[in-house]
């Protein structure tokens, strides 16, 4: 269950940063991303997937969230 800091990069893309692993990846796909909720399965550029229960209303970035490995 890594604690992940989500922030918007300079190009507007969502970045997925895990401090403990020095991992900073771009998020390529989010299962649920609309006005009502944000979350579900999150896919990163390196192909790994993480899961978070959809948060409603969608969180404001940057923020720290806890993900599960999917």
């Amino acid at each position: 269950m890594p604690s992940v800091m989500m922030r918007k990069g300079s190009d507007g893309k969502l970045l997925f940063y895990v401090a403990k692993k020095d991992q900073e990846e771009v998020v390529v796909a989010v299962e649920k991303d609309d006005d009502e909720a944000w979350g579900g399965i999150v896919e990163l550029t390196d192909g790994s997937k993480y899961y978070i229960d959809p948060i409603s209303p969608p969180p404001e970035f940057p923020t720290t969230l806890r993900f599960k490995r999917y």
């Binding site: 800091m5 922030r7 300079s10 940063y17 401090a19 940057p62 923020t63 720290t64």
Partner: peptide
């Protein structure tokens, strides 16, 4: 970078 990330999250200050 640690403190910059913290300030971005807590105070909304962008960093570059």
């Amino acid at each position: 970078n640690y403190i910059s990330r913290h300030m971005e999250e807590k105070y909304g200050i962008p960093w570059l």
